[in-house]
Design a protein around this nucleic acid. Structure first.
Length: 326
DNA sequence: CACAGAAA
DNA sequence: TTTCTGTGG
């Protein structure tokens, strides 16, 4: 069960970064940061990202390493941060917090017994976006003049909404949920090297002859962040069944199955809490010196960790100059 | 989440 | 051929 089941249904295509020049990408900040926090930190010494006060600010390194990719290809990122959580999500957050506490207990035990493998697995699972991480990320983005949007609820939903409104050209996220949220075009693998993968919403619907609602129903049958899938139903049979019975209810009746909160989950994807209260400029004037000072002096990150990234940002900023005709 | 191998 | 389960990143 899982969202990755949607991969089998999604209309995907590799696109060269060079073809994306001039476009605007709404990046799901949580998703993007999480990726850096679980890779950047793990393969290096976390000491390098810890201040003398013991605060972990690996996110700053992640931001500095991740942004050049956008700037060098004339892509404008808009970072969308999560707001409050939905009731349904809240239950999940609680569960995750409890689970995290269990992991942290295990982690403490592993450290005592010196089990290195166990320690690293558990560390990856206890990564989380602390308030400090969110705040310092916002501060750094402000120095670099990167637009930030505050979502009322889920950042992904807000990003997808802005894409549907035409305020941005793409949503940037690794998750397949954006498909269920109706994001017209999602760019995946913006964090890794190499060309991104483009996920096309309309093409996906057309390929399987489904409506948006039906695609959401397929997702629910396979399982989403909010529900376990129905046993025995994967992406293939879900599509077949939804087409056969029309919608989720038809399928559930026919299989005598039940999904908790199915109607609410549907709404979360089809009509999520979003806002029109966003506003951003797409021509950026980063203050790289201020950003360097913020990261290296204020947060004591060793210069060599971010020097290369800042140099790249500076170089691409100088090249593009100020596109004040936009 | 991706990928691989087992199970159905 | 599709779904499930485990593992590693």
């Amino acid at each position: 069960m899982g969202n990755a089941d949607l991969r089998q249904l999604a209309a995907l295509e590799d696109v060269p970064l060079s073809s994306l020049g001039g476009s605007v990408v709404a990046v799901d900040a949580h998703n993007w940061l999480y990726r850096y926090l679980t890779t950047t930190v793990r393969f290096t010494r976390s000491r390098a990202y810890t201040t003398s006060d013991g605060e972990e600010v690996a996110n700053l390194v992640g931001v500095v390493q991740g942004l050049p990719k956008f700037f060098e290809h004339d892509l404008t990122p808009v970072f969308v941060f999560d707001g409050g959580v939905t009731d349904l999500k809240e239950a999940e957050v609680d569960e995750r917090r409890e689970q995290r506490e269990r992991y942290e207990e295990l982690l403490a035990e592993a450290r005592e017994s010196g089990d290195a493998a166990e320690i690293s697995t558990l560390e990856s699972r206890t990564q989380r976006l602390t308030p400090l991480i969110q705040e310092t990320t916002r501060d750094l983005l402000r120095h670099l003049d990167v637009p930030v949007v505050e979502a009322p609820a889920e950042g992904e939903a807000q990003a997808a909404y802005m894409a549907r409104q035409g305020a941005v050209d793409y949503v940037g996220s690794e998750d397949y949920d954006t498909l269920l949220l109706g994001a017209p075009y999602t760019l995946r693998q913006l964090t890794s090297s190499g060309d991104p993968e483009l996920m096309d919403f309309e093409a996906t619907l057309a390929e399987h002859d489904l409506t948006w609602e039906q695609l959401v129903d397929v997702g629910i049958l396979c399982g989403t962040d909010f529900n376990e899938g129905v046993p025995g139903i994967g992406p293939k049979t879900a599509v077949k069944l939804v087409r056969e019975h029309g919608d989720l209810w038809g399928v559930l009746d026919a299989r005598d199955a039940y999904v908790e909160h199915a109607d609410l989950i549907r709404e979360l994807f089809l009509d999520p809490t979003v806002t029109d209260d966003y506003d951003f400029e797409t021509s950026l004037s980063p203050d790289v010196e201020a950003a360097r000072a913020y990261v290296c002096e204020e947060w004591e990150v060793p210069n060599e960790e971010v020097e290369r990234g800042f140099d790249r940002i500076e170089a691409s900023a100088a090249q593009t100059g100020l596109d004040d005709w936009v």
